[in-house]
Design a protein around this nucleic acid. Structure first.
Lengths: 249, 249
DNA sequence: CAGTGGTCTAGACCACATG
DNA sequence: ATGTGGTCTAGACCACTGT
């Protein structure tokens, strides 16, 4: 499937419409992932094949692939090939799960689902996910534990349109892998807002702490490969024996 | 000043000692910044000049400069040149100051210094900064405000060796700029650990909240261009009208 | 205009993984 | 042995900034 990227020059139409070839290539390749033409874990054609397909040089394709790799969208392995990144536990731990035991050990948490239901989106949920009035969402509540300690109580809100039937499924520990494998929704990045709050009586019971205990409140909106907001999640985390790890660079 | 990078091939000595030329170039250039040969804000020689100096091609230098730019060590401006990144307020806000007003406005905070003193490092400070028993540190306490609201109370610990005489200076809002300009210490990145804690009586007074109010506790170790730990800082932040912003990608 | 970084190409060779 | 990505080079041309 040839694509035919367009070279844009200074004089062609508006002067500001310049878009490098490698960026156009990146857009095409990203779209193929977003549309599911290339599934997570799958191998891509070689750089030369993609180059021939798009009608550009191998070096240009390389630059596009390098940027997508930097964004954790692809994984490249010398001698083997380039693969669509999977949401395996290691990646989740590295990219999306920041809660860490104070001794530094990082592990993927166990989860226990408490409740799943379909409801009309609240005004706040609509605002956070960019939904219209009346849109339905799937609400999930669960608790998560590390090394046997229940340390996170979280609630999630998903647009039902994107995840048809998810409410009647068994939910695994690793939800993003499920989103990708079963619904073709590939989480690419997320924005988190952290606050400190006092544990309510209900939450305190789940986390086995005293009511009023300070908890980390992590408010996340997850964004997929196509830049759509696809999940709103609020996690309340014990931070007595755990901390949220953030590297500034 | 010619440098003469060495090409390493598979057979030369051990098989695993391979180091790409662009990485060697990066090391040389980074060292020049770390040693102060190139100061923040200063322009670097052109890619071709650096290439001639190091005895490699311009493309190889470019790859080194690109990586350093991605690490916020350099700033490149088409048509002008490549510059050593400065710790101006905009960079601090982008890279190191994550506290944000809930309405989304991001501003650089004002600071008021409460106390500065030189003491022997506590065991915890020694552990966090990698110091020896008996090493002295400079301790700084200050409060910071955004839009007129005092929202952060923080304490910092610096190895005295690296900052001789800082204890008798006026301290500006932007400390990292001071570190660079006056002590040749260039902060490159930092690790932060977040917890939720209850406000003590003393802290509550500073932040004008009730004792026991949940606060974000941000524990940061800052690392310089040479990978040395150069500052330990604990910030207690009000999170009623503010949040800590973190982008996962 | 000259000089900078940014893009794009083509080709050679190296390192790594697999058959 | 083959095929992949990784490094390195050389050169052409484009886009942007200043003089």
């Amino acid at each position: 499937m040839a694509a035919g990227l367009k070279r844009m020059r200074a004089g062609s139409g508006e002067g500001l419409g310049f878009r490098p070839l490698y960026r156009q290539a990146k857009d095409v390749l990203t779209r193929r992932i977003a549309e599911g033409a290339w599934q997570p874990g799958q191998i891509l054609p070689s750089e030369f094949e993609i180059a021939a397909d798009l009608g550009v040089s191998q070096g240009t394709v390389r630059k596009a692939l390098d940027e997508m790799t930097a964004e954790n969208l692809l994984v490249r392995r010398q001698g083997r090939g380039t693969f669509v990144a999977r949401h395996d536990d290691a990646r989740i731990l590295f990219q999306f799960f920041k809660l860490t035991r104070d001794d530094g050990e990082r592990r993927f948490p166990d989860s226990r689902v408490l409740d799943v239901r379909v409801v009309r989106a609240s005004p706040e949920a609509r605002e956070r996910l960019g939904l219209a009035a009346g849109d339905k969402v799937v609400q999930i509540e669960r608790v998560r534990s590390l090394a046997g300690i229940t340390c996170v109580a979280e609630g999630m809100v998903l647009p039902q349109k994107l995840f048809p039937g998810i409410e009647s499924r068994a939910l695994p520990n690793n939800l993003y892998e499920l989103y990708a494998a079963e619904f073709g929704v590939t989480v690419a990045r997320a924005n988190e807002r952290l606050k400190a709050v006092a544990a309510t009586v209900r939450i305190a019971k789940h986390l086995e702490v005293a009511p009023g205990t300070p908890l980390l409140r992590v408010d996340r909106v997850a964004i997929d490969v196509g830049a759509a907001r696809i999940e709103w999640r609020v996690s309340l985390c014990r931070s007595d024996e755990f901390h949220y790890l953030c590297e500034l660079r």
